[in-house]
Design a protein around this nucleic acid. Sequence first.
DNA 1: GCCCACACCGTAGTCCAGTT
DNA 2: AACTGGACTACGGTGTGGGC
Length: 201
Amino acid sequence: MTIDGTVPHRESAHDVPDAEMDVSESGSCEKGPHAFRTISEVADELHVPQHTLRLWETQFHQVRPLKRGGGRRYYRPEDVVLLTRIADLLYNQGYTVKGVQRLLQEKAVLQMAAVPQSVDIVTSDGNSMADAELVEEMQTQDVALIADYQQVEAVVAELPAAVEAGLEQALVQLMGQNVRLRSDLADVLVELEAIRRKILV
DNA sequence: GCCCACACCGTAGTCCAGTT
DNA sequence: AACTGGACTACGGTGTGGGC
């Protein structure tokens, strides 16, 4: 098996897991959206020279392609999405490299603040989660939050009046937190939708 | 105080030689 | 074909000194 149909016998079969490859039986195919890409393929796709992609790798720690035999880079779909976003910010929106770095950092902080204690926007190996995965995670958190809220409400309804006042205060705080979290989640979802639309264009 | 010329510095690539 | 690392280039921004 090869990395793809267009670039035969580059690496041995064990270099990249089969499950991560998008390969047709015929051997002559376009890569699917989930296929790994070499630096030359990503460079073609983004209309950016290869050396620029390597440079970005040193400048943006979020860009971390897999490296296999001989130190060759294999870009995952999420890497390509991130690089597309970086290219857009740099070349279309006039950001500097530092500006993009700051934007990516702020975005990570915002996302973590919006969904406390649960979602790692940057995974343990330093890579960004896919959009769909992130949205799903946030929706799960939202549902869990509502469930917690309803649970507290039910408990309060059964408590004696003596402690009710204190719990009501806690409930008000929870409701406030709920509103803020919902607002933050809505902002993040809007931002993700905007990014997705750009990618699909 | 204002303007101009020049030097210096940082940023963003680009090129190249040698290697895998 | 793709890798690394260092040297190099182009360009814009900033600082400084001198003349008016």
